[in-house]
């Protein structure tokens, strides 16, 4: 496991404006609201016992949750929210194999109120296993799926409340807001290229030369490329929108025209490469192209843009384990 440290100094001499309320409402809040809507819809479909519709709805939840995750800043605004994403998603963050544990819970007759006590048992990863490998017409399985979906929805609502509570804090210190935003982009891009693409395509340090599509984030449900596209679409929201003043506009205000143009170009390449991935197959030339494009995107954030903007210090966990 390798830890990359990025240090980010907080714009000591910069006084221009940064991301503002329009950005906050159009990206941060709108994405959380969309994910809550998706989770609510999924709960309804599970309650109705419509597994096929629930599977489609699950894809929507994956798409919308990845948008929230891609710009998750709340832990930087209040450390009490640092761990909240872990209660929704354990991809690459939990060594335990939850599948046999969930099988035991299904097979047992323990009261579900305490049988599902682990946070990992109520995540989107656990819900994927239930929806795509179990039959929710079985009352106990359906009840388990509902507990999971409701838990995810509850944490998404907690995130929305948190953002609303800390909106003033985010907007008051725009320099800090921009710093943590760029930091989130860098961290997210590293995980995107290394975990979500490199580990699967056999291009990461850990799995060099050992590709395996089963390592993909949502291999069971076939939503892995959807998740990647959603993350990249969120980056588009952050750096290249014409609807509100975004981070790209801020970068230009600070004279980083060349650097942000490069980042946008690499982002477009990444999106184009993601669109070429067929049948969730990351192995081969298409996976390589996507890995290269996202690697270039990360470098354009991490090296060029940060350097140009005077960002010098902040920690970024970039776990290559």
């Amino acid at each position: 496991m390798k830890k990359i440290i990025i240090v980010l100094s907080l714009f000591l001499s910069i006084n221009a404006s940064a991301v503002n309320k329009d950005f906050f409402d159009n990206v941060i809040i709108a994405n959380v609201n969309q994910s809550i809507d998706s989770s609510t819809n999924l709960i309804i479909l599970i309650e109705q016992g419509d597994q096929q519709a629930a599977k489609i709805s699950f894809s929507n939840l994956v798409r919308d949750w990845k948008k929230v995750e891609a710009t998750y800043l709340l832990g930087d605004l209040n450390e009490n929210y640092l761990d909240t994403p872990r209660y929704i998603d354990i991809f690459h963050g939990n060594n335990e194999d939850i599948k046999p544990q969930l099988d035991l819970i299904i097979e047992s007759d323990d009261d579900l109120s305490y049988a599902i006590y682990k946070h990992s048992h109520k995540t989107i990863n656990a819900l994927e296993y239930i929806l795509f490998s179990k039959d929710i017409s079985t009352p106990r399985v359906k009840a388990i799926a509902l507990i999971m979906a409701k838990s995810i929805s509850s944490y998404l609502t907690e995130i929305l409340d948190g953002y609303q509570t800390h909106q003033t804090q985010f907007l008051k210190n725009e320099q800090y807001a921009s710093a943590i935003l760029l930091n989130a982009l860098v961290a997210g891009t590293y995980k995107l290229k290394e975990w979500r693409i490199g580990d699967v395509a056999g291009l990461s340090k850990k799995y060099k030369g050992e590709p395996n599509n089963h390592r993909a984030e949502y291999a069971l449900s076939g939503n892995s490329i959807l998740a990647i596209k959603s993350i990249l679409a969120t980056h588009q929201q952050v750096i290249n929108s014409n609807k509100y003043k975004d981070f790209g506009d801020i970068a230009r205000e600070f004279g980083a025209n060349k650097e942000i143009d490069t980042a946008i170009r690499n982002l477009k390449k990444s999106i184009a490469s993601a669109n070429k991935i067929q049948d969730e197959n990351f192995v081969g030339i298409q996976g390589q192209a996507l890995y290269n494009a996202t690697n270039a995107l990360m470098k354009s954030y991490y090296i060029s843009l940060m350097d140009r903007l005077g960002f010098v210090s902040k920690v970024l966990d970039a776990d290559g384990d």
């Binding site: 496991m1 830890k3 440290i5 761990d83 872990r86 690459h92 963050g93 060594n95």
Partner: peptide, 11 residues
Amino acid sequence: DDVTDGEETKL
């Protein structure tokens, strides 16, 4: 990096 174990458990 010096005050963090690179192999600490990721949660």
